[in-house]
């Protein structure tokens, strides 16, 4: 399956947004979704920090599909230049067609750890349990979301809106997120240890190293470690 690469999963969701307008605010549903998502950028950190096993994810609103803008330049154009007998309709027929979506879509794309099962449903249930309020605040404007009442309903709904990836490339690694964060913490701490302990007598170095290993507790994933979304160092 294209969505899966090792233990990592590429979730691509397009949820159709209803065409309504919020009367009080005179704002279209799609723009309300946009406004809420923009609002998340002003919070101390993203609500997605609370969703377990999320490596990276993004949200945006797809208003319409695009038609490549480059004008002309196809073979009938050139023929039309050289031979005026080549009809204009032939030249125009080679131009890109214009497409128009009938709904706007909330796009949610996430790279997450799902483990060897390859099942995305537990991740989605975890997302509902962690940030139900935020999920409802944006998805409430989408078709079919009225029927979502619980974590199972949310997982089923999102999977109906999901699209299969043709190719998923993992350039990083597919370890569980807490493993990745712990390793990053250790890397950072050890780089500092190596600098701070240069040129010491072996006995002191060894003593310091033992204290360092105790302090970083490499087998304890929960703490000390980097919390998800950490963007500042002490």
């Amino acid at each position: 399956m294209g969505n899966l690469s090792g233990n990592a999963y590429a979730l691509t969701v397009l949820s159709p947004i209803k065409p309504g307008i919020i009367a009080d605010e005179q704002i279209a549903y799609a723009d309300k979704v946009r406004s809420i998502l923009q609002g998340w950028n002003g919070l101390p950190n993203s609500p997605m920090t609370a969703v377990p096993q999320t490596y990276l994810c993004r949200y945006f609103v797809l208003d319409n599909v695009y038609t490549e803008s480059q004008p002309g330049g196809s073979a009938p154009d050139t023929l039309n230049d050289w031979l005026p007998v080549v009809p204009d309709w032939l030249r125009r027929a080679a131009m890109p067609a214009h497409d128009q979506l009938k709904s706007r879509y909330l796009v949610f794309s996430a790279n997450v750890y799902v483990g060897p099962s390859g099942d995305i449903a537990p991740y989605l249930r975890g997302m509902w349990q962690a940030i139900r309020k935020e999920v409802e605040s944006i998805w409430q404007y989408c078709y079919g979301f009225d029927e979502v009442k619980d974590a199972d309903g949310f997982a089923a709904y999102i999977q109906r809106c999901a699209l299969p990836a043709s190719l998923f490339f993992v350039g990083s690694n597919d370890e569980p997120l807490p493993e990745q964060l712990k390793a990053l913490y250790i890397k950072q701490q050890f780089a500092r240890f190596a600098v701070d302990n240069q040129g010491l007598p072996t006995a002191t170095l060894r003593q310091n190293f033992q204290a360092f290993m105790k302090q970083i507790a490499p087998h304890e994933l929960a703490t000390p470690t980097w919390e998800p979304g950490k963007y500042r160092l002490p």
């Binding site: 998502l37 993203s46 997605m48 990276l56 993004r58 949200y59 712990k182 890397k187 980097w226």
Partner: peptide
């Protein structure tokens, strides 16, 4: 298309940092 909200679990790290952290550990 521009992203409205983008979340990264490790904003301080590059992809190479994530890979090398595993080796360091």
């Amino acid at each position: 298309l521009d992203t409205l909200h983008y979340y990264n679990a490790y904003p301080l790290a590059t992809s190479n940092d994530v890979k090398s952290a595993r080796i360091v550990k």
